[in-house]
């Protein structure tokens, strides 16, 4: 087969990988009640991506730094506005998104904002694949080495601190993984829709799972089905895969609850 005939292979592999790692990461974020932070980071990567593209460096670095900066700003504000964290985090989320949108004309960058916001899976290339494989490896490493700490931190955060578990380090690594996963998922579903893949498969299983491990595996399997189904459907009806996958996540969740 020549290259023209297998153009679909990279998008397919990428979508399957994203379908697995987004819900796996979402399982950690939801059980540690940090999903709003993940959504904030998804939006916070935008200014970094635009700057990186403007100065011609790998957008992963720009997005990673910008996403971490967003998380840091939010954590600082949360300490100042205890009990009002949702409000301060949503303000940072909107602020970073606005900054990213403003940077496009200001830096005169040739960026397709729609692709970043909603994804363009069919334009995926080998760099996207490598980026996703790195995120997958870091996530697997965290799960293999710190599984019990992640459980402790989820069920009893104060107890985990008192038991001198490396809570700060684990939270930092989780934030870095979240940023990497979000950046990896941009091509597939975009920064606006990635939250659907982080949340929906997890919500479908969280009430029945008896362990974090089981939740991660079930959610990843469901995410895999949703992304492969969404991609197939998008090709069949000639619609963009990101919004199709996002819609499919919501519809499946509603149907499962009914």
């Amino acid at each position: 087969m020549d290259e023209a005939q297998i153009w679909w292979l990279t998008p397919l592999i990428l979508s399957l990988l994203i379908g697995v790692i987004c819900p796996a990461t979402g399982s950690l974020l939801i059980t540690q009640r940090r999903i709003l932070l993940a959504n904030l980071m998804a939006h916070s990567v935008l200014p970094g991506l635009v700057i990186a593209l403007a100065i011609g460096i790998d957008p992963t670095f720009g997005g990673l730094i910008s996403g971490l900066l967003g998380a840091l700003v939010a954590e600082r504000l949360n300490q100042r506005f205890k009990g009002r964290e949702e409000s301060s985090m949503n303000t940072v989320l909107a602020g970073f998104t606005a900054l990213g949108v403003l940077l496009v004309p200001l830096l005169q960058t040739r960026v397709d904002l729609e692709t970043i916001l909603f994804g363009d899976l069919l334009a995926a290339n080998s760099s996207d694949l490598i980026r996703t494989l790195i995120a997958t490896s870091v996530l697997i490493l965290l799960l293999l080495t710190r599984y019990q700490d992640l459980v402790f931190l989820g069920v009893d955060p104060d107890g985990a601190i008192a038991a001198k578990r490396p809570v700060t380090q684990i939270r930092f690594v989780a934030i870095v993984i979240t940023a990497l996963v979000i950046i990896s998922a941009i091509t597939a579903v975009g920064i606006i829709l990635v939250i659907a893949l982080l949340c929906a498969p997890v919500l479908m299983h969280i009430e029945r799972s008896t362990s974090l491990r089981q939740l991660i595996l079930k959610s990843a399997a469901t995410g895999l089905a949703l992304t492969s189904g969404g991609m197939t459907l998008s090709i069949a009806v000639d619609l963009p895969p990101g919004p199709v996958i996002g819609s499919l996540c919501m519809i499946t969740l509603i149907l499962k609850r009914i």
């Binding site: 459980v151 989820g154 069920v155 009893d156 107890g159 362990s211």
Partner: peptide, 20 residues
């Protein structure tokens, strides 16, 4: 700890909780 500091909805069995 007090009840309020535990996330009782976390997916975990009784046995795993004790072994923490």
């Amino acid at each position: 700890p007090q009840r309020a500091s535990i996330d009782w909805t976390f997916p975990i069995t009784v046995n795993e909780m004790v072994r923490l």
